[in-house]
Design a protein around this nucleic acid. Sequence first.
DNA 1: TTTCTTTGTTAAACCGATTTAGCAAAAATC
DNA 2: GATTTTTGCTAAATCGGTTTAACAAAGAAA
Lengths: 341, 341
Amino acid sequence: MKKTSLNDIAQQLGVSKTLVSLVLNGKGNEYRISEDIQKKVKELARKLNYKPNQIAKGLRTGKTNTIGLIIADIANPFFGKLGREIEREAASHGYRVMFCSSDEKAENAKLQIEMLQQGQVDGFIISPPNGSEEQIKQLKNSKTPFVLIDRYFPEIESNCVVVDNLKASCEGTEHLIKNGRKRIACITTNPGMLNMDNRLDGYKKALTDAALEVDENLIKILPFSHEIKDVMEAIKELTSLDENKIDAILFTTSKVGVMGIQCLHLLDLKIPEDVAVVSFDDLDAYKISRPSITAIAQPLEEIGKHSVKILLEAMTDKSKKKELHKIVLETKFVIRNSSIK
Amino acid sequence: MKKTSLNDIAQQLGVSKTLVSLVLNGKGNEYRISEDIQKKVKELARKLNYKPNQIAKGLRTGKTNTIGLIIADIANPFFGKLGREIEREAASHGYRVMFCSSDEKAENAKLQIEMLQQGQVDGFIISPPNGSEEQIKQLKNSKTPFVLIDRYFPEIESNCVVVDNLKASCEGTEHLIKNGRKRIACITTNPGMLNMDNRLDGYKKALTDAALEVDENLIKILPFSHEIKDVMEAIKELTSLDENKIDAILFTTSKVGVMGIQCLHLLDLKIPEDVAVVSFDDLDAYKISRPSITAIAQPLEEIGKHSVKILLEAMTDKSKKKELHKIVLETKFVIRNSSIK
DNA sequence: TTTCTTTGTTAAACCGATTTAGCAAAAATC
DNA sequence: GATTTTTGCTAAATCGGTTTAACAAAGAAA
């Protein structure tokens, strides 16, 4: 039982496939096709359950109605939820989403982008890994519409949707200070990535603003790809400082945060008594954890909606003067038990 | 800067595009194209950064090298991790994955399958929602290769990869019994869905095997789509039973589990002192939760690998006698603090 | 009656690849 | 020298749609 094509309908009715195509694309009246024939075409199409082949359509029109989404890892709940929002918003505009996990490796992202660029997608939403500047430039040169999310490269003018990482981080750190913490550590990752650097800067700014010393010994920067043992090592170093033990940790990603909290439990350090905790990204895990974890929640729905809308605009706007959008959204600070006395 | 096509290369070298296509597809020797010309073609292709248009290729060959994945919700960590495994395995065989979240609604799945079936994917991996039997039958009739995961329909012969839900659930319940629990409740969802029904049966079997009464009052079945308030209501009912208060709960999905644990915390019920907890699916959340949560872990990597491999076989095997595979995998029971004294 | 419009429809090009069938020239065989 | 085989390459069909240009028939205007 092979699928019905335009030609099948045309032949059965003894008309041209042009006519069938016009009618089924709603251009029947515009092209003055008689009502009678229009009705016949539509009826037969329904009867044969005709669905246009999207590949053929895509080849001719150059449109696929598909968005390529390049993120670090769809298994990471942060990206999973973000991906869902993007999928939802895209679907509401008739677009599908091709998900690709880059594992934060520029090489992977390069291959994925190149692959999808061969006529498979109309545009991209990308969370660009460290070192993928060249790839993004190439994308820009090739006039492929795209939107960067979560981070961007200041030296490359492009659409992007991010959050105010510096402010968010600063707010989280201030909260710890206000709650009497004096030796606040920061465990972060992905150095050189703008969003992470901003989060570290926000931490430092809060300390400086409160006239507290920024002690480089309290800052642990993990490699791009880190395992729980890396986090454990960092925490052990932080807690084995002879004088002035740490009394709080700011985790700049939920991945580090989850691992860090596991480590604190393993080391039998009480949260928040021994160490207060604040983490970026709000997970279900943080809500059910005992104590519940204070989190810096990113507005995932907004990020998803904005990025899709901007991309759609870039994809459909024929006028050459494509305006670039740089959207900076606010995070929401959710105070729970891990950070208060 | 538009993309280079086969024709561009052919014209610049003054040869036919047939020749270029043959050379670039490694059939140069087979078709006795001279070494000299082969070299020139390959060089120019590299120089012009030629990448074949996958849409055109797909139209001609009828192959897209894309798999359609229909799951409940990519934001659900269980499906996120599973999706990642499928993406990984597919990529290792040169396939891409189109993710679709059905929200467990048959209508959504129907639209998504119909949409992708129009030449966009070569096959499907599907976690079929309740009520999507007709759609799966249609898929089967249309000879589209597919593999069902997580659940399947016994009345429809098809490839599938699932876990031994009955055994897993039985094991979890037995563990609670062994640890002295006598009034064990079960909160489940999606009635009529085979995997869920099996989990409930496993729970009942363990009770019966231990000569404990199966009290229907202790079984709460939530509607397909449930919110935390539904879970709260169920738990309130369970804990307000006058005589013989419950002393344990088995959650049959992590979504229900996470919500349930939140509720127990809100109600100030101590885990495991007041209520012991065992949940299906192993989340990061369960590892960092205090107490850590005993979980029935599904072998996500195995499920991903098997489903992709079976699908690949179904997609490439030209011999009509497609053997159907029904794979039943074992779960892993991870004992943590939520279920022991 | 002749010419111009309008109406209703279609042939053919096109998108960019793959694949089949075949052709001219050179080499081998008789 | 004539015939067959091999070598090296290409024209054209094809996938299933969309889109452009055009054409015959009928009606309106001159």
